[in-house]
Protein backbone atom coordinates (compact mmCIF):
# COMPACT_ATOMS: atom_id res chain seq x y z
CA UNK A 1 0.00 0.00 0.00
CA UNK A 2 2.25 2.68 1.24
CA UNK A 3 5.35 3.41 -0.72
CA UNK A 4 6.81 5.97 1.57
CA UNK A 5 6.55 7.01 5.16
CA UNK A 6 8.06 10.15 6.55
CA UNK A 7 8.42 11.52 10.02
CA UNK A 8 8.86 15.26 10.09
CA UNK A 9 9.84 17.26 13.10
CA UNK A 10 7.97 20.24 14.41
CA UNK A 11 10.40 22.58 12.68
CA UNK A 12 9.66 20.76 9.44
CA UNK A 13 12.99 19.08 9.32
CA UNK A 14 12.96 15.51 8.12
CA UNK A 15 13.46 13.03 10.93
CA UNK A 16 12.92 9.88 9.00
CA UNK A 17 12.06 9.05 5.45
CA UNK A 18 11.59 5.46 4.60
CA UNK A 19 10.23 3.99 1.48
CA UNK A 20 9.89 0.81 -0.32
CA UNK A 21 10.10 0.66 -4.01
CA UNK A 22 11.25 -1.49 -6.78
CA UNK A 23 14.49 0.40 -7.00
CA UNK A 24 16.26 2.09 -4.17
CA UNK A 25 18.29 4.39 -6.33
CA UNK A 26 18.93 7.88 -5.12
CA UNK A 27 16.61 9.21 -7.75
CA UNK A 28 13.74 7.36 -6.22
CA UNK A 29 14.73 8.57 -2.81
CA UNK A 30 14.91 12.12 -4.11
CA UNK A 31 11.49 11.98 -5.70
CA UNK A 32 10.04 10.74 -2.42
CA UNK A 33 11.57 13.66 -0.66
CA UNK A 34 10.10 16.05 -3.19
CA UNK A 35 6.71 14.49 -2.68
CA UNK A 36 6.78 14.74 1.06
CA UNK A 37 8.36 18.15 1.07
CA UNK A 38 5.69 19.66 -1.12
CA UNK A 39 3.04 18.12 1.07
CA UNK A 40 4.24 20.16 3.98
CA UNK A 41 2.55 23.32 2.70
CA UNK A 42 -0.88 21.78 2.73
CA UNK A 43 -0.16 20.17 6.04
CA UNK A 44 0.85 23.40 7.67
CA UNK A 45 -2.10 25.22 6.19
CA UNK A 46 -4.41 22.68 7.70
CA UNK A 47 -2.79 23.05 11.07
CA UNK A 48 -3.09 26.81 10.91
CA UNK A 49 -6.72 26.70 9.93
CA UNK A 50 -7.57 24.27 12.67
CA UNK A 51 -5.79 26.52 15.11
CA UNK A 52 -7.59 29.64 14.03
CA UNK A 53 -10.86 27.85 14.38
CA UNK A 54 -9.90 27.02 17.89
CA UNK A 55 -8.80 30.57 18.48
CA UNK A 56 -12.22 31.85 17.60
CA UNK A 57 -13.72 29.97 20.44
CA UNK A 58 -11.40 29.94 23.41
CA UNK A 59 -13.86 27.79 25.29
CA UNK A 60 -13.15 25.09 22.80
CA UNK A 61 -9.49 25.09 23.64
CA UNK A 62 -9.85 21.75 25.27
CA UNK A 63 -11.32 20.41 22.13
CA UNK A 64 -8.30 21.29 20.08
CA UNK A 65 -6.31 18.91 22.16
CA UNK A 66 -8.76 16.26 21.29
CA UNK A 67 -8.82 17.12 17.64
CA UNK A 68 -8.35 14.34 15.27
CA UNK A 69 -4.69 13.76 14.70
CA UNK A 70 -5.43 12.34 11.32
CA UNK A 71 -5.53 15.05 8.70
CA UNK A 72 -6.63 12.94 5.81
CA UNK A 73 -5.55 13.31 2.24
CA UNK A 74 -3.19 16.22 1.86
CA UNK A 75 -2.97 16.11 -1.86
CA UNK A 76 -2.59 13.69 -4.63
CA UNK A 77 -0.65 13.55 -7.80
CA UNK A 78 -1.06 11.39 -10.85
CA UNK A 79 0.80 8.60 -9.20
CA UNK A 80 0.68 9.17 -5.50
CA UNK A 81 -1.65 10.09 -2.70
CA UNK A 82 -0.30 11.75 0.34
CA UNK A 83 -1.89 11.50 3.75
CA UNK A 84 -0.99 13.46 6.81
CA UNK A 85 -1.12 12.95 10.52
CA UNK A 86 0.05 15.30 13.22
CA UNK A 87 0.81 14.30 16.75
CA UNK A 88 0.10 16.59 19.64
CA UNK A 89 3.73 17.54 19.75
CA UNK A 90 3.52 18.65 16.15
CA UNK A 91 5.43 15.76 14.77
CA UNK A 92 4.11 15.19 11.31
CA UNK A 93 3.68 11.75 9.95
CA UNK A 94 3.22 11.51 6.23
CA UNK A 95 2.20 8.44 4.37
CA UNK A 96 2.43 8.19 0.63
CA UNK A 97 0.48 5.62 -1.28
CA UNK A 98 0.92 4.80 -4.86
CA UNK A 99 -2.22 5.17 -6.90
CA UNK A 100 -0.72 3.33 -9.83
CA UNK A 101 -0.39 0.04 -8.06
CA UNK A 102 -3.64 -1.91 -7.94
CA UNK A 103 -3.56 -2.26 -4.18
CA UNK A 104 -2.92 1.37 -3.55
CA UNK A 105 -5.42 2.84 -5.95
CA UNK A 106 -8.53 2.05 -4.01
CA UNK A 107 -7.30 2.26 -0.51
CA UNK A 108 -9.80 3.21 2.07
CA UNK A 109 -9.46 6.13 4.36
CA UNK A 110 -9.85 3.98 7.44
CA UNK A 111 -6.93 1.84 6.44
CA UNK A 112 -4.71 4.82 6.13
CA UNK A 113 -5.93 6.07 9.43
CA UNK A 114 -5.06 2.87 11.21
CA UNK A 115 -1.72 2.68 9.46
CA UNK A 116 -0.84 6.16 10.60
CA UNK A 117 -1.96 5.40 14.13
CA UNK A 118 0.31 2.43 14.18
CA UNK A 119 3.07 4.52 12.79
CA UNK A 120 2.49 6.98 15.60
CA UNK A 121 2.84 4.17 18.10
CA UNK A 122 6.04 3.02 16.44
CA UNK A 123 7.39 6.51 16.51
CA UNK A 124 6.55 6.87 20.18
CA UNK A 125 8.37 3.61 20.84
CA UNK A 126 11.38 4.77 18.88
CA UNK A 127 11.79 8.01 20.74
CA UNK A 128 11.37 6.28 24.05
CA UNK A 129 14.95 5.26 23.56
CA UNK A 130 16.74 7.24 26.27
CA UNK A 131 19.68 7.78 23.95
CA UNK A 132 17.58 9.43 21.33
CA UNK A 133 17.69 13.19 21.31
CA UNK A 134 14.37 14.72 20.34
CA UNK A 135 14.82 16.56 17.09
CA UNK A 136 17.50 14.24 15.82
CA UNK A 137 17.04 12.00 12.88
CA UNK A 138 15.71 8.61 13.76
CA UNK A 139 18.37 6.10 12.98
CA UNK A 140 16.94 3.15 14.81
CA UNK A 141 17.11 0.11 12.59
CA UNK A 142 14.32 -1.49 14.53
CA UNK A 143 12.06 1.42 13.77
CA UNK A 144 13.07 1.25 10.16
CA UNK A 145 12.28 -2.44 10.01
CA UNK A 146 8.95 -2.01 11.69
CA UNK A 147 7.96 0.82 9.42
CA UNK A 148 8.90 -1.14 6.34
CA UNK A 149 6.88 -3.98 7.71
CA UNK A 150 3.95 -1.69 8.27
CA UNK A 151 4.09 -0.47 4.73
CA UNK A 152 4.21 -3.96 3.32
CA UNK A 153 1.65 -5.55 5.60
CA UNK A 154 -1.01 -3.17 4.58
CA UNK A 155 -0.82 -4.11 0.95
Amino acid sequence: MAVCVAVIGKDNSPLYIGGIGTDSSTDNELSRQWLVHTALDALEERLVSSNTNAGNAPANAARTDLRDLYLGLLYSTDTHKIYGYVTNTRIKLVLVTSSTSPSGSNIRDAEVRTALRRLHALYADAICNPFHLPGDQITSSKFDKQVKNLMLNNV
Binding site: W34, H37, T38, L40, D41, A42, E45
Partner: peptide, 13 residues
Protein backbone atom coordinates in the same frame (compact mmCIF):
# COMPACT_ATOMS: atom_id res chain seq x y z
CA UNK B 1 -0.57 31.29 -7.24
CA UNK B 2 0.95 28.91 -4.75
CA UNK B 3 3.21 31.70 -3.66
CA UNK B 4 0.22 33.91 -3.20
CA UNK B 5 -1.39 31.48 -0.81
CA UNK B 6 1.88 30.98 0.98
CA UNK B 7 2.51 27.48 -0.26
CA UNK B 8 6.13 28.22 -0.91
CA UNK B 9 7.21 24.64 -1.07
CA UNK B 10 4.59 23.86 -3.65
CA UNK B 11 5.55 26.94 -5.54
CA UNK B 12 9.17 25.91 -5.44
CA UNK B 13 8.24 22.47 -6.64
Amino acid sequence: LYKEIGFLRKAAF
